[in-house]
Nucleic acid binder design. Sequence first.
RNA 1: GCGCCCGUAGCUCAACGGAUAGAGCAGCAGCCUUCGAAGCUGUUGGUGAGGGUUCGAUUCCCCCCGGGCGCACCA
Length: 566
Amino acid sequence: MNKTTPQLIREALAAVSGDVSFDVLVPLDRRLGDYSTNVAFVLAKKEGQKPLDVANELKEKLEAGELKSICEIKSAPNGYLNFFLKPEFLQKQLVEINKDENYGAGTEGAGQKVIVEYSSPNIAKPMHIGHLRSTIIGDALANVYAKLGYEVIRWNFIGDWGTQFGKLISAYKKWGNAKALAKNPIKEMLRLYVKFHDELKNNPELEKEGQAEFKKLEEGDVENKKIWDSFRAESLVEFNKVYQELNINAAGIVKGESDYESRLKPLIAELEEKGLAKESEGALIIDLGKYKLPPGLLRKSDGATLYLTRDIASLEDRLQNYNPAKILYVVANQQTLHFEQLFAVAKELKMDSAELVHVKFGMVLGEDGKKLATREGKVVPLQEVIDKITAMAYDTVKQKNSGLSDDQAKEVARTVGIGALKYNDLKQHPYSDIAFDWKAMLDLSGNSGPYIQYTYARLANILNKAGEHGNGDVGLLVEPEARALMLQLLDFPEAISKCAELHTLNGLALYLYDLAHLTNQFYERIHVLEDENIERRNARLLLIETVAKTLKQGLGILGIVTLERI
RNA sequence: GCGCCCGUAGCUCAACGGAUAGAGCAGCAGCCUUCGAAGCUGUUGGUGAGGGUUCGAUUCCCCCCGGGCGCACCA
């Protein structure tokens, strides 16, 4: 597929309307036309003419061109131009789409690199629910960019450095148990983390001890380094387990903040030399007043470095060694200021070869609308979330589909549960906080991941029963339900590129839901297998096959797996 | 106090500055002798308040109210 249908229409419009610097071309409104535009209205206003006159004028010009063979054009009194695609065109497109094994792929990213930073867990604590959104959104976003032809570098920036590790080391020295650590590292680390914060309430001195231990670690203390090494190694093993369960693409660059440790001193020296960094209240800061931001902290008064410093070093590494056109930081809302500061510093340092974007998202809330993320002494480990959703899905699967063996049911439950979890997140606009409504997520009906997976399974079932089939006679695809499906298929590429443009996934999620819904409407009324007209039956199979492939592709981009039987 | 984000149906969420603000859930009323009822159909119901810009505002600007997050040694 070279050009999408909306593109064809846009270009034809641009050719006849002259100035199309306004971006009002071809919004969709299926109630009134397959595609429609208000270009005539805008032009009329500019030139002081009547919208309908301009619309008719445009219509005539368009009808002289190639668009005429694709669609009927109608003008509305208010100046809207509506386009109705011809059945033959839709049918031809269907055949094309079916042949295209990589339908929806774009070329806009060709030759460009993009770094997508996501997940970025912290080894001092188990991966918790707060990392879930970054992981899910980032993974899907990376998929989107890959689909558009970008060379995608997935970047997991492990939080493995900072005062908190001093605290953990301090806790380990006081209350640690080497055996427990060897046996269940995450559990032991969590115990120490919680214990430390409990004790901290009664003994504020611990704060300083933790800072001191980190300082020692930073200065290369052998014992501390050894403890830290084992914490880090064990954590990474655990993270990978979670990625595997969540079906997250974890291949890519895994670097910790600690990897930039050696770079920090020279970096700070350079900043001081350039006169950008200065002492203030014993700490080293960079003034960002001209960006209307509070100063960024580069070094604490005790000499230890900070997150911002390490992120600057990492940015430098990314720009110099990977040369990306774009870097996306998929990190929670709370860190907005941090990234504003980081991006400002990048400007100051002329580190501007890549477009830097903070892809932010809201918190995960519980059913009560309250924060569900890490709290003092109380964390919701991600593993617990996965286990719970999987268990719930298992009950449902057993109840809905008794034909599955226990092993099959477990596998289905895992796929459906994770799918529900991911879809629940991705269907929403990332900025808002999302509510973790367990029941709604697994209701398996309505706008949910399982709904789409179920739709796919239904189609797969038909296709499996039908076996081999040719294209049939696509001219026989004349029902409104078939037409609606063919039309929806045309919009898949745009749904994907929109995601990249906006750095959100909810558009694609909604697109897939719509496609699934249209599919179910088709399924409800048109019975494919029993059709005695073989040409028509085969054409319908072609349609179903194309829809199934598109559903699978789309869900795949969202990181959701499809199954032939669920 | 300052900065950023968010207020849309009973609930959870959509909506490039455009036509009659859309879905799902819940509620109500229907559809299984036909490819999987985890489905389909119908129905009730809404832009926090007030100004402004515009032919047109959920969207942009101002102000107020309500909620969240952040604001120097955490990440």
